[in-house]
Design a protein around this nucleic acid. Structure first.
Lengths: 320, 320
DNA sequence: GCCTTTTCTGCTCATATGAGCAGAGTGGGC
DNA sequence: GCCCACTCTGCTCATATGAGCAGAAAAGGC
């Protein structure tokens, strides 16, 4: 039945006494009739074989090992992975990632002079989780057209103002719809002095912070009335996995519908790709596909996500 | 938003660097700009507050803390708790507990000269998990009437023989049905020289090993034809939670139906309660109630069980 | 505001632990 | 059977860590 791997069993017994009963290796040795060196080695082998799992359970803990793997695999400047800790609740995961993003933002050196941001539930959460005085003198600028048709209009603006206020800086809004009906309108609004000024400021921001949405009927762009459910269905049919700063991308990170994209106001994805510091906050089980598209197509230099998404991204079924 | 428990956050960061990145406390101190003593204290406080969980993941690991609590709470001589490790599969839990019981039996000192056993799936598993030569010269005797009406007849016998063989000892079977139809038959069979001899041997065993069944239609006693489903339903109605060595007990560990009990062949529960070493192996989600009845009524001196059952037993909702 | 009490900090020192090494044991090839 | 290669064991020694303590800082009472 056994005797095959007696050492394994011994190492488990030793681990129990050492970690659960916190005895010294010497005492463990005395109990199991082993020298303390042997106990040390058994413990080491148990760790090696993964029988001893040390977990840090705290909503604000991070998964450093996953972060390292992500950085390496996708050539990121940084990665923040917050623990899932069993929860599958999208709101909870989003809040944790937002906290992680807020912490990261506060620790970012050099402190960005101007921070370009998108808007949405995730960004709103980040704003809320930022500590008062997380930095000083950081100006905030919106990088894509805001909502204006319903009550969420205020949220986009509030997000920008809150982030700026907490850093004693100025907020600059992009006074334009997200998507226009005609390409001509989009061109002329962009040509407007006010809008052009904001766009220039956005283009010169020292860092960017944005999230990504899932291509689905509950998208913020649908809720805000820029697109219909049918429009999104069509985009999905054409390969869309989600949107980044209002622009729909496919699994390869390419624009799905160029004509739609030409009517979308805000920074282009190529401009975003050229940035030195662009922080994407993407968490939740539904967002695995967009997250993959974002990191594989180089849209961000820093990814803030949850454990589940990180594991999915590192899934070897998708070779890098 | 925060700054309230900055030390907590620091201790988490320190724990991440120390455990996940395995840096030395000194290095962690350098990174977080703290003295190494402060780091040590933060780590200690994180452990204290339970943020650092060290788990030993191995089917044959044990839960020593739970064991200690069980021993204390129910005044047991010993308790063995095997980890659940997420599984809810009754067969798997039973096998793990059986392995735990087998290990315990092998390490039992003094080695019992005679071991009284019951029969059933759990006991069969224990027999299988015992290592060849787990002891030498241990004689095995059945303590309750065996099955005889169907193919499981052999199992009860095989269990006894296997345990004995692996310890180079003799097995003695109790050649009697578990339950008889008439009290008179039971009395006369017990008076029979052969049966009486076995019962005497059983009464004088130096240790006992038994399991418990759930009061339900899938009980071994029903399967073997001694009772009908309706009989068991009636017993449940009268408060039965399960059976121990063929005798149905209620939550308080009392015999549910004295007239049925008088027709049951084998050791009495009082005799079992008087034993110095009686090992009960009870595992699985369905057996929480029987397990509780067994430990609270002093039927065993040693309990072998799974984590889930142990936690249920220690549930403070049931004051001891 | 001043003093007392409590908590916190950075230290010394004893202890626990891991790295590295030489000799003992083990197994396989011939 | 003998030798070589390999692994395993018990050691020395350097390092990491926790206990205990005195002074610093903070909190609370009046």
């Amino acid at each position: 039945m056994e005797a095959i791997d007696n050492d394994e069993l011994l190492s488990i017994r030793a681990a129990e006494l050492y970690y659960d009963e916190n005895k010294t290796q010497d005492e463990v040795g005395a109990i199991l009739k082993l020298t303390r060196w042997k106990v040390g080695r058994l413990l080491a082998s148990a760790k090696e074989k993964g029988f001893i799992r040390i977990e840090i359970v705290h909503p604000r803990a991070r998964r450093l090992t996953l972060e390292r793997s992500l950085k390496e695999r996708f050539a990121l400047a940084d990665a923040i992975v917050v623990p899932t800790a069993g929860t599958h609740d999208a709101d909870d995961l989003r809040a944790r990632a937002a906290q992680g993003a807020a912490d990261y933002l506060a620790s970012l050196r050099p402190v960005p002079r101007t921070l370009g941001i998108s808007w949405g539930r995730t960004l709103h959460d980040v704003a809320e989780h930022l500590a008062e005085g997380w930095a000083t003198g950081v100006n905030v600028v919106q990088i894509n057209g805001g909502v204006s048709v319903n009550q969420r209009a205020g949220t986009a603006a509030a997000t920008a103002f809150e982030i700026a206020r907490k850093a004693s800086g100025q907020a600059t809004l992009l006074p334009s719809p997200a998507i226009l009906e005609r390409r001509e309108t989009k061109l002329s609004i962009e040509a407007d002095r006010t809008v052009a000024g904001v766009l220039t400021m956005a283009a010169n921001a020292s860092a960017y912070l944005y999230s990504a949405g899932v291509a689905g009927a509950d998208s913020a762009l649908v809720e805000s009335g820029y697109l219909t459910g049918a429009d999104v269905d069509e985009l999905v049919r054409r390969g869309a996995v989600g949107d980044v700063v209002g622009r729909y991308i496919d699994a390869a990170g390419m624009i799905v519908d160029p004509s739609l994209d030409e009517r979308t106001v805000g920074m282009s994805l190529d401009a975003l790709r050229a940035a030195t510091t662009s922080i994407a906050v993407i968490a939740g089980e539904g967002k695995h596909a967009v997250a993959r598209a974002v990191v594989t197509s180089g849209l961000c230099t820093v990814l803030v996500t949850d454990e589940g998404t990180a594991l999915d991204l590192l899934n070897p079924d998708f070779p890098a």
